[in-house]
Design a protein around this nucleic acid. Sequence first.
DNA 1: ACAATTTATATCGTGTGCGATATAAATAAT
DNA 2: ATTATTTATATCGCACACGATATAAATTGT
Lengths: 148, 148
Amino acid sequence: MSNYEQLKLENQLCFPIYAASRLVTQLYTPLLKKLDITYPQYLILLVLWEYKSLSVTEIGEKLLLETNTLTPLLQRMEAKGILLRIKSESDERRKIIELTKYGLQMEKIACQIPVELAKSVSKGFSVERAMRLKEDLKLLIESLTRDN
Amino acid sequence: MSNYEQLKLENQLCFPIYAASRLVTQLYTPLLKKLDITYPQYLILLVLWEYKSLSVTEIGEKLLLETNTLTPLLQRMEAKGILLRIKSESDERRKIIELTKYGLQMEKIACQIPVELAKSVSKGFSVERAMRLKEDLKLLIESLTRDN
DNA sequence: ACAATTTATATCGTGTGCGATATAAATAAT
DNA sequence: ATTATTTATATCGCACACGATATAAATTGT
C-alpha cells in the first residue's frame, strides 16, 4: 500500500479519464476501419462535415489541437484523397482545408458509426448517465481551458 | 452544418473524453517536470508505490496497457534509475518490476501533486462533481472492459 | 516607410499507444 | 516424452501529441 492515500490509483480522477479515452478510441477503431481512417482523423472529418471549410488553426480551436499535431495529420488525409489544403488568397499564411468529393461521400457511411457505438455502450451504461457524463466533462474542459 | 445530427461534434460523447484526457495530462506536465517524468510514467509509479512489486502484465492489468506499450516505457524508467526489471526465478518469462531507492524516494515529492492539482481544478469544478465524474467514468470503463 | 511584433503554418525530436508479429519459457495434450 | 498450445515479454512500424523552434506573411508602432 502507498504511504499516501491520495496517491492510490483508486483515488485518482486522472486515471479513469485517461483509461476511458483509450478504451473509447479502441471501440471506434474497428468501425473506422471501413473508412480506412484513425480516430483523430474521424474528428477532423466531423468538424469538416459540419463547417465545410476551415483553416488549420480553426480546426485546432474546435478540437483543442495545435498545428504541430494537425499539419502532419492533415497531410496524411490529403495523401489519402480525403481533403485539400488550399493556400488562402487573402492571407498567404493560411491554408484552407476543404473536403474532396470522396471526403464528403464518407459521411454517408460514417452516419452509422454513432448508431453502432451507442448500441455497444448501452449495455451497462444508460443514456442518461452518458448525457450526464458528457455535460460534466464539458464543464471540466471549460474550467481547464479558461485562461487560468 | 453536417447533414446528420448525430455526427456533430457537439453531440459526441467521445470528443469530451478525448479532449479532457489530453487537457488533464497537460495539467500534470509542469508538476511532473520536478520529477523529470511523463504522465504515463507517473501512473506506473502510482501502482508501484502501492503494490511494491509487479510483473509487466500485472501493471498492464491495472493500467489497461499492453506490453508493447509498457516494455519501452519501463526500459526508459530503468535507464533513469527509477526501477529495476528483474528476471523471475520461478518463471523465467516474467520480469518483476521493483522501484529503486530513488524511485521510492520520489513518492515524498509526488504526494504534493494531487494537492496542487485539486487546487487548480477546483476553480469552476466542484469536488462533488469530480466524484460523480470519476464514478461515471469507472462505470463506463467497466462496461467497456467486460468481455462483450 | 521600415523595423519590431504578431500570426499561421510547418519542422524536429521524444514519448507514448497499439496492431501485428517474434521469441522463449511454461503448460497441456496425446 | 514429445509435440502443440499457451503465456510473458519484447520488437517493429505507424500515427498521434506536444514542447521547442523555424519560416514566412501580415500587422503594428514610430
